[in-house]
Design a protein around this nucleic acid. Structure first.
Length: 576
RNA sequence: GCGCCUGUAGCUCAAUUGGAUAGAGCGCUUGGCUACGGACCAGGAGGUUCUGGGUUCAACUCCUAGCAGGCGCACCA
């Protein structure tokens, strides 16, 4: 139920009919015609540019063209109160109240108002977080985690099929150092050998001590004397422990994945060999050398002959190595294999959420997916830009050395899940984000979360005072209310919700949702305050009764807020 | 040197995927609580949308050449 789409269809139909009657000419394509939300100052409900788009083909000035089409529209719609032509050639429509009553009637008991009916739902795979399993998540991981979760929610809200996946990098050097660190912590506990805290390759964090303790307690039968003999088993156990921490953190954030895919398994199952063979067959792989980047000093650069993937054929600046000099696979190679397994599962679209520091990786992995699938936009990568932490008005930097990491657990304990999610989502993922601890905790207008939640809480309080349940269906037969301009203003905002959801989904830009919810809340708070001077704007009268028209108004707003907040994964408390 | 992201009010950011006189919050300033929840609202000041070209009925938006900031640029992950 997107009234703008419906009206666009109506207009297109009318001009096509007019064309058949030889009243006007049509341009080659009509895709430029749209029905828009007019700027508020024009005091109308919808506007269309159809006059301007058709002016050329008809050799008439836009204003004249608009005038002509406006007459056609007016003749064919008895719900129009006023139709006006504005300067460059816009046609502005204002509807009678019956139009809005019909609109309200059509959405009042819909549970998924705003979701788009898609004829053929698609299968999406969203890969996000995928942080190395070497410890708990920290604040830096949050943005991408929340972004991926909400993008998944948006797709689901629009009836698509979504699988959420976490790629576990439980293979390679980092994991080896991680396992070694756990081992040394174990020896520290068992044999009082001091942990070499200055070794830069090792992981110094205190959480490793806990992992070590757990492993000692749970594995009485293991002899921790010889690293070589137990390293495989120890890796498995250590990764399992840190995944426990990660899942706990994700749970803190209200996030759950459908699958955790192990890199080690992909390598073990010869998926990498398979995918490299496939690429070889299609001539995307060759033996060659990579040149050192220019402008950067590289005394240590050594040119080596190695197995390369021709990512330059897809726009990358250099070809990428698949094999290390010791013949083992690179991270990239196993990631290509991982993506090949995604393709084998027949997803329509793959989405990866990455952090800003991995943006340089996008070209090569999209190249690989294109080479494997033959499709250009099979894989879409979204980047969450950096989050700048601010505490007491000052930038706060985390340091691995000092161990002053802010973990997700700390964050949630301090500011809560809802505030974290809402604030991180309130900005476009492409801009850097200031995350100010003091402001995020503030319960005021400075904090958009509470502004929106307060809106819902106020509506709830009205229902509470009336002894009604906000979740009950509304059964009103007669939708002929005489709403005022101030109320219609809110309906106009409500009518824009489907467009907001659609754009947010198509562009994978969740920030549009909180921005919209804030605006809607603002309209509501403004209306609420009108009730102070104007009793007709109050919801409950002296006899503790409420008119049906007001119930409808409240119900619709609360539903949109609730739907929106559900997409964001943020609660809407009845009381605050 | 190359790639990606960003540049909009004093500050932090929006702008319906090319629309009309570019909008919010903070800050500044003037007002509003005997009140369905003041965690709120109404008004005012504040702009050459980084710069120069181009595309068209129309450009913050697209193209192009620059400038500035961020991130990245090995067989790490």
């Amino acid at each position: 139920m997107n009234i703008f789409e419906i009206y666009l269809e109506k207009i297109l139909k009318l001009i096509k009919l007019a064309n058949e009657d030889n009243l006007l000419e049509l341009p080659e394509n009509l895709s430029g015609v749209n029905v828009d939300i007019p700027p508020s100052k024009f005091n109308c409900d919808m506007s269309t540019n159809v006059g301007m788009v058709l002016s050329k083909a008809n050799n008439k000035p836009p204003l004249e063209m608009a005038e002509m089409i406006a007459n056609i529209i007016k003749k064919n719609d008895d719900q129009i109160e006023e139709i006006k032509i504005e300067k460059p050639g816009f046609i502005n429509l204002k509807f009678k109240i019956v139009f809005w009553n019909n609109f309200l009637k059509s959405i009042i008991n819909k549970n998924n108002y705003g979701s788009k009916k898609v004829d053929n739902p698609k299968k999406f795979l969203v890969e996000f977080v995928s942080a190395n399993p070497t410890g708990p998540l920290h604040v830096g991981h949050c943005r991408g985690a929340i972004l991926g979760d909400v993008i998944s929610n948006l797709l689901k809200f629009n009836n698509h099929n979504v699988t959420k996946e976490y790629y576990v990098n439980d293979f390679g050097n980092q994991i080896l150092y991680f396992t070694k660190s756990v081992y040394l912590r174990i020896r520290e506990i068992l044999y009082k050998e001091k942990f070499p805290i200055d070794d830069k390759d090792l992981y110094p964090g205190d959480y490793l001590i806990d992992i070590a303790k757990n492993l000692i307690d749970q594995n009485k039968d293991i002899n921790f004397n010889n690293f070589e003999s137990i390293s495989n088993e120890l890796t498995r156990l250590s990764v399992k422990e840190s995944l426990k921490l990660i899942k706990f953190n994700l749970n803190n954030l209200g996030i759950s994945h459908d699958n955790f895919i192990s890199e080690a398994n992909i390598v073990k199952n010869k998926e990498v060999d398979e995918v490299v063979e496939k690429l070889k067959k299609n001539q995307f792989v060759y033996l060659g050398k990579i040149k050192a980047p220019e402008g950067e000093e590289n005394e240590n650069w050594v040119e080596r002959e190695q197995l390369l993937f021709k990512s330059t054929e897809f726009g990358d600046d250099k070809d990428r190595a698949l094999q290390k000099s010791d013949q083992s696979w690179t991270y990239f190679a196993s990631d290509v294999a991982y993506h090949n397994t995604k393709l084998k599962k027949n997803f329509d679209i793959l989405i990866n959420i990455l952090g800003a520091d991995h943006a340089g990786y996008i070209k090569r992995i999209t190249s690989a997916v294109e080479a494997l699938s033959g499709e250009k936009n099979k894989l879409i990568c979204k980047v969450g830009q950096l989050v700048k932490l601010i505490k007491d008005g000052k930038p706060f930097k985390m340091s691995k050395r000092k161990g002053d990491y802010i973990t997700v657990e700390d964050l949630i304990n301090e500011v809560g899940k809802d505030a974290t999610r809402f604030i991180m989502l309130n900005r476009s993922n492409d801009v850097e984000l200031d995350f100010d601890f003091t402001k995020v905790k503030e319960k005021s207008k400075d904090n958009p979360l509470y502004y929106v939640q307060y809106c819902y809480a106020r509506i709830s309080s009205v229902f509470r005072n009336l002894n009604k349940n906000i979740n009950d269906e509304i059964s009103i037969v007669n939708f002929d209310f005489n709403y005022s301009e101030d109320e219609v203003k809110i309906f106009k905002k409500i009518s824009q919700w489907p467009t907001c959801v659609e754009v947010a989904t198509d562009k994978l830009e969740p920030h549009r949702i909180p921005v919209y919810l804030y605006e809607l809340s603002s309209e509501f708070h403004a209306y609420w305050n009108m009730g102070k001077d104007d009793k007709t704007k109050r919801f409950i009268d002296q006899n503790n009764e409420i008119e049906d028209s007001k119930i409808v108004l409240l119900k619709i707003i609360s539903k949109v807020i609730k739907n929106g907040m559900n997409i964001l994964g943020v609660d809407t408390p009845d009381k605050m």
